[in-house]
Simulated scan of single mutants.
Amino acid sequence: MNVRSNPDRRFANTLARGLGLLRAYRAGDDGLTHSELAARTGLPNSTVSRLTFTLSELGFLSHEGRNDRYRLGPAALALGNVATASVSFIDIGEALMQKLANDTGTLVSLAVSDDDRLMLAKTWRPSGTASIWLEPGHRIPVYGSSSGRAIVAALDDARFEATAPSDEMRKFRSDGYGELISRGFTIAPRDLRFSDTINAVAVPFHAQEYGQPVAFSCGALPSVLDDARMETTIGPRLRDAVRELEQMTGRSPALVRRG
């Protein structure tokens, strides 16, 4: 995840670099060294050093004595708690999505747009499973993922065109839209999937807090979740769970029918 610069005079590149450093952290990290942060962000070590010092002084990172690893600090934790509390649909859907994970034996995930990729903002793993594939903070591509297909299919035309999509992305979106209209969920085509170690099915949800669609997905290893099971069992279960969440939160469906 390289931190990008922007030539627009209104864009604060130093702030972007600092936030990019915080975004480099994943749920399973036991702290990160300067070299690890530099590798994840694409920033020079000298820049990383200045940013970690500043962020530590402000409480967004913590650094204990001679330990060369930086961890997210109390200010980051407080900010994350405030952000989570302000997104009501996550709390409302907690029990619903956990039950879906338990019943299907899949990892249920919430994916949100993160620059030109998607980030898993929340995951629900089946009860009794110690570790399962992906964690919050993990980033996946839009093109080639079922969650990306669901989100771009639910975008309005103006917002989609603002991304300067390629012809391949246009077809990816169009086919995803057809899937959502016909059956209510999307599955990335096998030959386009960004990874051959996980299969997933996704459904968009209108997150008014973000002003754009997000995607709920169910994923698992291909040996657990093959295409037939996604299409006949897991896809319909996920679709129905998202519809129930829409009713619980009073949200309109994410998909806007196009003429």
Rank of each mutant, 00 (worst) to 15 (best):
R26M: 11
G28Y: 08
D30E: 13
D30A: 12
G31W: 02
G31T: 04
L32M: 12
L32S: 07
H34V: 15
S35A: 15
S35C: 04
S35K: 14
E36A: 14
E36C: 00
E36W: 03
E36K: 04
L37Q: 07
L37G: 10
A38T: 08
A38Y: 04
A39Q: 13
A39N: 10
A39E: 15
R40Q: 04
T41I: 05
L43E: 08
L43F: 00
L43S: 05
L43D: 08
P44R: 06
P44V: 07
P44E: 13
N45R: 11
N45D: 12
N45Q: 13
S46D: 14
S46K: 13
V48Q: 09
V48H: 04
V48D: 06
S49T: 15
S49N: 10
R50S: 14
L51W: 03
T52S: 10
T52C: 10
T52P: 03
T52V: 15
F53D: 14
F53K: 14
T54N: 03
T54Q: 06
T54D: 06
T54V: 13
L55K: 00
S56H: 02
S56T: 15
S56Y: 00
L58F: 03
L58W: 01
G59T: 05
G59N: 03
G59K: 01
F60M: 03
F60W: 09
F60Y: 14
F60N: 03
F60H: 05
S62W: 00
S62E: 14
H63N: 13
H63I: 02
H63F: 02
H63Q: 11
E64F: 08
E64W: 00
E64D: 13
R66Y: 00
N67L: 15
N67F: 07
D68P: 05
D68I: 09
D68R: 13
R69Y: 03
R69L: 11
Y70S: 04
Y70M: 04
Y70T: 04
R71L: 12
R71A: 13
R71Q: 11
L72M: 09
L72W: 01
L72F: 01
L72C: 06
L72T: 00
G73P: 07
G73F: 04
P74N: 02
P74E: 11
P74R: 03
P74L: 08
P74G: 04
A75F: 03
A76K: 01
